[in-house]
Design a protein around this nucleic acid. Structure first.
Lengths: 152, 152
DNA sequence: ACTCTGATGTTGTACTCTACAACCATTCGC
DNA sequence: GCGAATGGTTGTAGAGTACAACATCAGAGT
C-alpha cells in the first residue's frame, strides 16, 4: 500500500502480477487451442517446420538447441514429420553423422496453410485493436521474450 | 507491400505476425520453464491452487469449466494435490455428489512460496522496464486474453 | 596410422498431462 | 417414484517430454 524503496513499487508490482497471471493463462491454453485449430500439426511441429522454412534446412541438433528440447524429443518429432511426409532427412555427404533436414513440398504446403489459418485467427482476435496498440503490443512481447531467452 | 482496403494493412499485419510468433514462442517454452522453476508444482497445479485460493474453495466441475479441461483431468490433478496434502476434498452435506475443494494450510503455504518465487522471477525479467511500459503491457495482455476467452 | 574424445542421432524407458468413454452415485423434474 | 441430468472416478490411450545407454562418425594428438 505504501512506497518503499522506489517510486510507486506497488503500481509496478500490480502490473507484474497481471503480466504473470495473463502469460500463465495464455500458456496454459495455447497447446490445446492450437491442437483444436489444426489437428494436423501440433504447436511444436509447427514451430519446427517454421524454423526449417526460415533456415532453409538445418540439423536436428540446431533445432534442439534453438528450442531447448532434448535431442531425443527432436529425433522423434522429426521422425513423425518425416513419416507424415513433411520433412526430408538427408545424410550430409561431408559428415555422415549429421542429417540435414529439409521441408518437402508437401511440408511447405502444410506449413503455409496452417500459418494462414493461424494468421486469420490472430487477425480476428486482434481485429478491434488499432495500429499503434498492435505495434506497441508486438514490441513489448518481443522485448519480453528476448529477455527470456537470455535468462532462460 | 501496398495498401489494400484499409489504411496501412501491411503495418498491422507485420505487428500481428510478430505477436503471433512471440506468443507461440512463449507458449512453447512456458511449461518447461515453469517445471524447472518449481518442480513441486506444475503450471496447471499452480493455477488450480490459485483459483482455489481466489474462490475460497469450489467444485471440481467449476475448475474444469474455468480452465477448459476435462473433468477426468481435474479429478486426477486434484487427486495428486490431495495426496500431496495441498488440497482437501469435503463432501458437500447438502449434495452428496459434489466434493468441495479447499486449500489446506500447507497448500496455502506452498502456493504463497511458489507465487513469491514466480514473482521474483518475473520482477527480474521485467526489471529494466519502466512503470508506464509495464502497465501498458499488462493491459494489452489482459485485453488479448479476454478476447480469447470469448472466442474460444 | 591409431586411438581417444567429442559430436550427432536413435532407441529404451518412464513420467506427466490430457481426452474420451464407460461407469457409479446422487439429485431433480414431473 | 422414475427417468434424465449432474458430479466424479476409473480404464484406456496418445502426445510430448526427459534421461540414460548406445551406435556412428569425425577430428586431434601422439
Amino acid at each position: 500500500m505504501t512506497d518503499r524503496d522506489s517510486p510507486q513499487p506497488d503500481v509496478r508490482d500490480e502490473s507484474i502480477e497481471i503480466i504473470q497471471r495473463e502469460m500463465t493463462a495464455f500458456a496454459r491454453r495455447a497447446r490445446a487451442t492450437a491442437g483444436r485449430m489444426h489437428p494436423e500439426l501440433s504447436l511444436v511441429s509447427f514451430t519446427l517446420l517454421g524454423h526449417l522454412e526460415d533456415q532453409g534446412g538445418c540439423r536436428a541438433t540446431d533445432l534442439a538447441a534453438h528450442y531447448t528440447l532434448d535431442k531425443s524429443t527432436i529425433s522423434r518429432q522429426v521422425g513423425a514429420l518425416e513419416k507424415a511426409g513433411l520433412v526430408e532427412r538427408r545424410l550430409d555427404p561431408a559428415d555422415h553423422r549429421v542429417h540435414v533436414l529439409h521441408l518437402t513440398d508437401r511440408g511447405r504446403d502444410v506449413l503455409v496453410q496452417v500459418a494462414a489459418a493461424r494468421r486469420i485467427a490472430f487477425r480476428e482476435r486482434l481485429a478491434e485493436w488499432d495500429g499503434p496498440d498492435l505495434a506497441r503490443f508486438a514490441e513489448y512481447l518481443r522485448r519480453y521474450n528476448e529477455a527470456g531467452v537470455t535468462l532462460r
